[in-house]
């Protein structure tokens, strides 16, 4: 990963343009007629210092890409951001990232630019995506002044939409992972949680394909419909 970023930075800065501007990063894509069986999807998980988006910060970003219906392990993102000034006591226990590992992190700006470049504007999926979206948007705005809207989809909605009768015993990532017998290698590690989320996404996409859902737009609509149903039933 480190090597990749260095190369990328050298490539970008080697050009005459000097520092790249955030607005030069790939345009966010809108759900349209892209085929689910062909398009690229980002599955992402953040580690943060806490749950409060107004005062807590992002520590690490883990993400994998789904390409043409398969998780492509040569196309992944696993990075600790540089946040040495933060008080870590709150989250250090959950994530296992200590101050020492954090200081080995990367220049935040570079890392976030690389993330945007890597994301390539493709739709982003996350478990309880509202949380990750809030944190990522806040960080991108603060560090890069970047405010463009990406398409986000919540895997926590995706699963019950396709498996309404599953007796998971709860709504968490762990519940669904247990339900499908997934083994999560290092829970609460951003990259590892992202992979588990991506595996659940593959299961949902398999079901989507069988129920005739072909395009990204159809999937997006199905999720919106599911959320509306949920709110009507007043849960």
């Amino acid at each position: 990963m480190l090597e990749q970023i260095k190369q990328w930075i050298e490539r970008r800065r080697g050009g005459q343009t000097g520092n790249i501007a955030p607005e030069k990063t790939p345009n966010p894509k809108v759900p349209g007629d892209q085929l689910l069986s062909e398009c690229r999807l980002i599955v992402l998980d953040l580690e943060t210092t806490g749950l409060n988006a107004s005062k807590d910060e992002v520590i690490a970003v883990g993400a994998v890409a789904i390409n043409g219906g398969a998780i492509d392990l040569s196309d992944q993102f696993d990075l600790i951001l540089r946040r040495p000034e933060l008080d870590l006591t709150e989250t250090v226990l959950i994530h296992g990232i200590g101050p020492e590992a954090l200081t080995q992190g990367h220049e935040t700006e570079d890392a976030l630019l690389f993330l945007l470049e890597w994301m390539n504007g493709d739709p982003v999926l996350a478990y309880h995506s509202a949380f990750d979206q809030k944190f990522l948007e806040k960080t991108l705005k603060a560090e890069l002044g970047y405010t463009r809207n990406h398409t986000w989809m919540d895997v926590a909605d995706l699963l019950p939409a396709f498996f309404p009768d599953a007796l998971t015993g709860g709504k968490g990532l762990d519940h669904w992972a247990d339900f499908f017998g997934l083994e999560v290698s290092a829970r609460h590690h951003a990259a590892s949680d992202a992979l588990a989320t991506a595996e659940l996404t593959l299961i949902a996409l398999n079901k989507a394909h069988k129920s005739g859902l072909k395009t990204l737009k159809e999937l997006h609509d199905k999720l919106r419909y599911h959320r509306r149903l949920q709110s009507i039933h007043g849960v």
Binding site: A70, I71, L73, S74, E199, L202, I203, L205, N206
Partner: peptide
């Protein structure tokens, strides 16, 4: 192996 691998899902009977 790991860096060049892809992970795919197949439902029962696929």
């Amino acid at each position: 192996f790991a860096e060049h691998a892809t992970l795919r899902f197949y439902a029962d009977g696929d």
